[in-house]
Design a protein around this nucleic acid. Structure first.
Lengths: 139, 139
DNA sequence: AACTAAATGCAACGATGTTGCAATAAAAAA
DNA sequence: TTTTTTATTGCAACATCGTTGCATTTAGTT
């Protein structure tokens, strides 16, 4: 996926962030999880940590473009690692977020072609596409 | 937009729901608002009502396909009326939800062409597309 | 080793999600 | 129209999450 993922400290430093235990652990946990990680699960991995610290850690890493909110409904938010093309403000949009109704996993899936959305008279800054269905493994 | 919108009672009855004051009011408020209505604003319109009743009213109308969650981030959810083509389980996906960073409004925008998303080996049930940018009016 | 800017931990509060249960009201039946 | 049935409401109560301020601690630097 991303070579840098094995080096959370370098990832953090590249965005001028201090490599604190909570931050490096968060990056490692999300990476280890393999798909977009629900907040509730993140909490379980950090049950000894302070809730506010975790909150601010997530905010900061989202702000700096190291992770992103892959999926959100009114109940839960899922977090995923950004790929190397992500910057602090933009994310690639030739990928979509897929939520499987069977295994409940949220994954980032790449599309062969960029999605074309024609909205004349609108300025489009960011596109996010969520698909719900049944994933390859569960089908 | 939708003729039925002027008749919240009929809308409710068509889904075998009792036409209670909270339900008819919710449908009217969202319709009157014109774009996807943030939950915080809905609350303000219902400040005398019980919070749990409002919660259950929303749940029920979403479940029955009269309204839908047009947009959600980790902070807030936006609700919009479903069009007549919506059923309890599916929503049209030749429209997108647009959030304007200037006026903060979330609107449903129709696309001339259906969005094509090719995900071989996946079963696609529902596609939702959120676009962030600057709307026609603010540009 | 000392310094400095940034991150953490804690307290504290507000908003939202969620359930159970008794009281109430809407729709249907008589 | 009145009664009956069944769904909805209101309230209490609790859990989770978002958010801020401030004092303490720590990472990266000098």
């Amino acid at each position: 996926m991303n070579n840098e993922l094995e080096f959370p400290i370098q990832m953090l430093h590249s965005r001028k962030l201090k490599a604190t235990p909570t931050r490096t652990k968060l990056l490692k946990e999300i990476h280890a999880y393999g798909s977009a990680m629900p907040y509730s699960l993140i909490c379980r991995k950090f049950k000894n940590a302070d809730r506010v610290t975790l909150y601010r850690t997530i905010e900061k890493l989202v702000e700096k473009g190291l992770i992103h909110r892959a999926f959100s409904n009114n109940k839960e938010t899922y977090y995923a690692l950004c790929n190397t093309k992500c910057t602090a403000t933009t994310h690639y949009h030739n990928h979509i977020h897929f939520k499987c109704t069977q295994c409940k996993l949220v994954t980032c899936e790449h599309l062969n072609e960029e999605v074309e959305i024609s909205l004349p008279d609108f300025v489009v800054d960011k596109i996010s596409i969520n698909v719900v269905g049944i994933c390859k493994s569960c089908k």
